[in-house]
Write a protein that binds this DNA or RNA. Structure first.
Lengths: 345, 345
DNA sequence: CTGAAAGCGCTAACAT
DNA sequence: ATGTTAGCGCTTTCAG
């Protein structure tokens, strides 16, 4: 370690070329004679040299970093998406800088700040503030300010913002799920979990009602159950309350996500009902939870790998000055397992 | 955007001071007269200026980034640990650069390379190669090479390496769990899941046997069940095989982790046995899975937030030239839920 | 306490 | 095809 750190200067001197030439072979940005190129490559090999990303970024004014701000990767939905974004970014020569906002404004701001300091080339935002039904004005203003210098791609919605949006087609997802349940003879269908001020939840409820209308099934307000959280516990408590109330039990329950479904399943089992014999349960997201649950959950899934691709591709297209679509939808897919039954037979 | 980007020069000029002075107020690295400091701070506020981390890093030769290489954050164990490391790093002014190796050597190398290019100040490695019982010689050599210039902290083991280690005390964890089961009357205890060439698994098996010996319980080799993976499916298959074989069913099963436990629970239920009435199940890691399972799983947990602190603190101490402990252990804690019963009554 | 100036390691014109 | 020369935006001696 007493040695001079190796830089392109060191390589250049030893190879008898200029630093610029070393840079050229490093970036393939221009032709270099075979002779010199090979010489330089040998030295690079010899010293196991790799260029300093900070210097490169400073000089090129491109960090080759994409920032990804998620609410909490302990939620498998975000973990899966994050992993796919990382893959997509790597495939395109970018690094993913992942942070968790923990659903906390201060944290969110802190990480946004740090990402800005790193001069990330683009920003991907998911969940949290960008998923609220009524967009926070100040927040929108701040995002627009960022979007002014850095492309911002969001999963969710942010009214009046300059951001690119790549969203799950929640509407279609709910339509498909409702059709599946109704065609299996269900009429008393409950949608359980979530807050109406969360956009994705709002959209699902809207489509739930329009599906009912389409099939001529009367809407029962008590079958739309709001919960504060999107957790296992939320589902458990909501379902317990339904048992405690005198509400007629639905034949099928749509959980707002896999976590909530898990809680609902627990409650149902604790009350000695069987799934799907007595009650059918379906959910959204199709994380590994759906597959790990007993019985395995029928769930609306998304092609996460395409989702990651779309997010990252949009970000990169935007930062390269191309104009990607402002709004894209990821098609949902119904994954049928053992938690729903046909009640007509 | 036609405007000159704001840098410390812009601030300096407008404040009538030198760039060095702006830098000083930014870093609090030296005293600046109140008058000038306030003037500068006002301008910083006005332009919403934040320093370019690449320039700062290049100049100071400190990136203030800690790299964290995990196998796969879709596994809640790693997700939890990653979140805690991120928190710990943030609290100390560092950024966490998280990547997933996906249990793939090429990916691991790729991300290690990228982290090196970013000149991360320290590296935290978990799972994968650093958890193999027989350490890969070439890998050790490479890690030592990295450790030569960058502190490396690992969770796991790497024989003959210069790395710092922060490990779960697997031995104590197994001892506690065995004592709990045995004191609840269990004699036929099975340990299911994992590969013996994974260090953490190896240690658990060793202590399993020594616990048996301590309590004078005969060792039955058929009660040590190896699986290739650490997944739900691994557990399901292993338990199914046990049912298919003519082996006497154990009264308690220790799963190598929560995932495997989940699979085991599924298999047991499919075979119409009850938990814990017929068979007790316990596991390691105490992720949210243990709490979400039905019945809720008794599991050996760790204080993840202390774990994250230890990892990050060790990394930072090392990079600051202090000499943290080379080897530290995180104490385990038994979380008792409803999946094990006392069979003596 | 403050400013001038020299880098940090690379890329990107601009020459040649 | 290759070398020279400026920077990129900050920190850090070194003077004063």
């Amino acid at each position: 370690m007493g040695k001079e750190r190796v830089s392109i200067y060191r390589i250049a001197k030893e190879a008898g070329v200029s630093p610029a030439t070393v840079s050229r072979v490093l970036t393939h940005s221009a032709n270099v004679s075979d002779e010199k190129r090979i010489k330089v490559e040998e030295l690079i090999q010899k010293y196991d040299f790799s260029p300093n990303a900070m210097a490169r970024g400073l000089s090129s004014t491109q960090s080759k970093i994409i920032g990804l701000l998620a609410p909490d990767i302990r939620n498998p939905f975000y973990a899966t998406l994050a992993v796919e974004c990382e893959r997509a970014a790597s495939e395109r020569g970018y690094i993913l800088l992942l942070s968790n906002s923990m659903n906390n404004m201060d944290m969110e701001e802190y990480h946004l700040q740090k990402m800005f300091e790193q001069r990330v080339d683009a920003l991907i935002l998911m969940g949290g503030k960008v998923d609220e039904f009524v967009s926070d004005e100040e927040y929108v203003e701040k995002m627009n300010q960022i979007a002014d210098s850095t492309p911002v791609v969001i999963t969710g919605k942010l009214d009046g913002s300059d951001c690119y949006q790549v969203n799950i087609d929640e509407a279609q997802a709910m339509d498909i799920l409702m059709e599946y349940l109704i065609s299996n003879g269900h009429q008393n269908i409950c949608i359980m979990g979530g807050r109406k001020n969360v956009n994705s939840t709002y959209v699902k409820r809207i489509r739930y009602r329009s599906s009912l209308r389409k099939y001529g099934i009367p809407f029962r307000p008590e079958y739309v159950v709001e919960t504060q959280g999107y957790s296992v516990e939320s589902g458990l408590e909501a379902m317990n309350e339904m048992f405690d109330s005198k509400i007629e039990l639905p034949s099928a329950i749509i959980a707002i996500n896999d976590f909530t479904a898990l809680g609902i399943v627990q409650s149902i089992r604790q009350h000695s009902y069987r799934i799907p014999e007595d009650i059918s349960v379906a959910s959204f997201d199709n994380t590994f939870i759906a597959d790990a649950c007993t019985p395995r959950l029928t769930s609306m899934g998304y092609n996460y790998d395409k989702f990651g691709d779309a997010l990252v591709e949009t970000a990169i297209a935007a930062l390269e000055g191309k104009s990607p679509l402002k709004l894209q939808f990821i098609p949902p897919e119904l994954v049928i397992r053992e938690s729903c039954r046909n009640i007509e037979q």
